[in-house]
Design a protein around this nucleic acid. Structure first.
Ligand SMILES: Nc1nc2c(ncn2[C@H]2C[C@H](O)[C@@H](COP(=O)(O)OP(=O)(O)OP(=O)(O)O)O2)c(=O)[nH]1
Ligand SMILES: [Mg+2]
Ligand SMILES: [Mg+2]
Ligand SMILES: [Zn+2]
Length: 586
DNA sequence: GCCGTTTTCGGCCCGACTGTTTTCAGTCG
């Protein structure tokens, strides 16, 4: 039972409770638990087996710990099965529609017997929905549109894909009359690997013309919502954009609000409540004595701050927290205790250790790659074309690698100021041996290994396979350790906890492959690697000089994984990195 | 259902927009 599946059970139960009209706090408890499970670096099953106390996890109490145990043992939750007898699980499908939440789902079920999206579509077309109390012609039409949108399935965007649309959008918005500040917020600003929409904050005195200008953007396909301070549009690309407009005095509070995450906001605002403060997107306010927070205006009470983001943190006894950490995964406690990490930056990177050339499936020559790396300010780079048994086109055999070394040595004569390393991305064969003989491996400057075949191997065998490969003394880096490709290929089934320990033992670095659809290891894994003291290499895995910039997407995830410069081997200046490469063969 | 150097009971973040309402519920951020 994978953690994502456990989280799915908990979320489904939360949704059904919600539809039943159960306590919203109980519903939230199940959603929080699902969130916690989903962002664990180890399988819950493994934690239980190891006798770990699940109640130490945030949002997991005694009941939830029992539920987790039950889900792991039986694959489901008896109380979920019970609720399912009254409410079909397909009802939760309805809640995926825009503008349709638990209350309306319940009403549609009770009044019309609707249990699925297709039944809802039929009921709308038959005019039954608009006749229901609380519904009308407009809401029925909106639902009809939501169904179309649902079926067209505009999923989440890769961060790098979203970037393509954000840049021209920002260029347009900066032209808006009276704009003082413009910031991208939300998951994009927190650099999540995928984003559900683009959230943008604007500061100006007169919001009206800015909102108009926003909606007049030539890429806008549809205006979803348009109020005085917030608007939502859908672009032709299918990307949703939310714009929020506030006055200058609220800039910091609004930025904090809009960057999120939701869980982080809730936790920070809760700290405010404990101090008699109300934190919203307009500022931080002292709640007047004898007044209920409910019946206050949005800016009522003594203003403590709000113009700068630091105001929010300072008001609740925290130092400023970098957006990439704002997931309520321990950053608030760390900020309280003054032990936030000093996060790695792109400037810390001194070299790139995985890239491909025209010798295998790359688009540029070795020399072009090396010079492009030099232009990026690197001190070293490694050409790591594929070994032959790789299913990737054009893998090299021993003979070709020897030829390639000759060329590299020749190019070295012409290069000045960058060290060009002879590398390889070497297959880990199904039995855990490596695809080139030892006498050959010794002659590379750097050896990356990776699984490229038999990806569906069962967990125990895959783990043994990789562990055996890690123990080979020529190996420097385990490349893209899980093999996942976002929305394309699931990660291999492997016990990463064992891999981490072995990597540490063997002094092998684990890769963060920075290709936008790989980002492998991911942020959660990187955080665990940091905890265990495992070294990381952040590599672009570039197949052309343009791809060298993928490094920044790797840095994003490294930051989300709390990594500091010291954990990342390719932040070392060349003399130190050279010693590090020599360490195991010496 | 979770949680606690203010609490083991009684809190649980806070606000914008829409559609339908005759004063606000529902949904979403
Ligand atoms: N205080 C508070 N803030 C919220 C809530 N929901 C959303 N926000 C804030 C934090 C979010 O990061 C921000 C943008 O909302 P989104 O729904 O776009 O979420 P986000 O961008 O984090 O993720 P996404 O990739 O869009 O799904 O608004 C909430 O319930 N309470
Ligand atoms: Mg968003
Ligand atoms: Mg949004
Ligand atoms: Zn590979």
């Amino acid at each position: 039972m994978e953690n994502v599946e456990i989280a799915r059970v908990l979320n489904e139960y939360a949704n059904l409770l919600d539809i039943q009209g159960d306590s919203p706090f109980r519903v939230r408890a199940y959603r929080n638990a699902a969130q916690t499970v989903a962002s664990l670096s180890q399988p819950v099953a493994q934690l239980i087996e190891a006798g770990e106390d699940l109640q130490q996890l945030p949002g997991i109490g005694s009941s939830m710990a029992e539920h987790l145990q039950e889900i792991v043992e039986t694959g489901t939750l008896s109380r979920l099965e019970e609720v399912r007898r009254a409410l079909p699980s397909t009802l939760t499908e309805l809640m995926q529609l825009e503008h349709l939440g638990p209350k309306k789902a319940r009403q549609l079920h009770d009044a019309l017997g609707i249990t699925s999206v297709s039944e809802l579509a039929a009921a709308i077309d038959a005019g039954k929905v608009e006749a229901l109390p609380g519904f009308g012609k407009k809401s029925a039409a909106n639902l009809r549109h939501a169904i179309d949108a649902f079926e067209r399935r505009s999923r989440r965007f890769l961060l790098a894909d979203a970037d393509q649309f954000v840049r021209p959008l920002l260029r347009h918005l900066r032209q808006a009359p009276g704009i003082v500040e413009l910031e991208v917020a939300g998951s994009y600003r927190r650099r999540q690997e995928t984003v559900g929409d683009i959230d943008i904050l604007a500061v100006c005195e007169d919001p009206h013309p800015v909102m108009q200008h926003f909606q007049a953007y030539r890429e806008v396909d549809r205006i979803e919502m348009a109020g005085p301070t917030r608007g939502t549009v859908i672009l032709r690309s299918g990307l949703q954009v939310d714009l929020r407009i506030v006055p200058r005095r609220s800039y910091g509070a609004a930025l904090h609000y809009f960057i999120g995450s939701k869980a982080h906001n809730v936790a920070v605002r809760q700290l405010g409540v404990e101090r008699g403060l109300r934190i919203n997107e307009y500022g931080i306010f002292r709640v007047p004595k004898g007044k209920k927070a409910d019946d206050l205006g949005t800016e009522e009470g003594e203003r403590i701050g709000g113009e700068r983001e630091e105001d929010v943190f300072r008001a609740v006894g925290l130092v400023w927290i970098p957006p990439e950490l704002r997931e309520d995964r321990g950053e608030i406690q760390a900020a309280q205790e003054g032990r936030l990490p000093h996060l790695i930056t792109l400037d810390d990177i001194r070299g790139d250790l995985q890239m491909h050339s025209t010798w295998s499936d790359g688009a540029h020559t070795i020399e072009e790659m090396a010079r492009a790396c030099q232009e990026r300010g690197y001190e070293y780079c490694a050409i790591t074309d594929h070994s032959q048994s790789t299913r990737v086109a054009g893998g090299l055999d021993a003979e070709r690698f020897r030829k390639q070394w000759e060329e590299i040595e020749e190019i070295r004569q012409r290069l000045d100021g960058i060290v060009l390393l002879k590398g390889v991305e070497l297959d880990i064969l199904p039995d855990g041996s490596l695809a080139l003989p030892d006498d050959m491996l010794e002659q590379f400057d750097i050896v990356l290994i990776a699984v490229h075949s038999q990806l569906d191997m069962p967990r125990a065998r895959m783990t043994r396979r990789v562990l055996k490969a890690l123990s080979h003394p020529a190996v420097d880096i385990l490349a893209h350790p899980t093999g996942r490709q976002i929305r394309k290929r699931a990660p291999v089934d492997i016990d990463l906890e064992e891999v981490f320990h072995a990597a540490k033992e063997c002094d092998v670095a684990l890769e963060l492959d920075a290709q936008p659809e790989r980002l492998d290891l991911n942020d959660v894994h990187l955080h665990r690697a940091r905890e265990l003291g495992v070294k990381v290499a952040i590599d672009s895995d570039a197949h052309s000089i343009e791809h060298l910039r993928f490094m920044s997407y790797g840095i994003d995830q490294a930051r989300r994984g709390w990594l500091e410069r010291q954990q990342v081997v390719n932040t070392l200046p060349w003399p130190k990195f050279r010693r590090c490469l020599g360490r195991r063969r010496a």
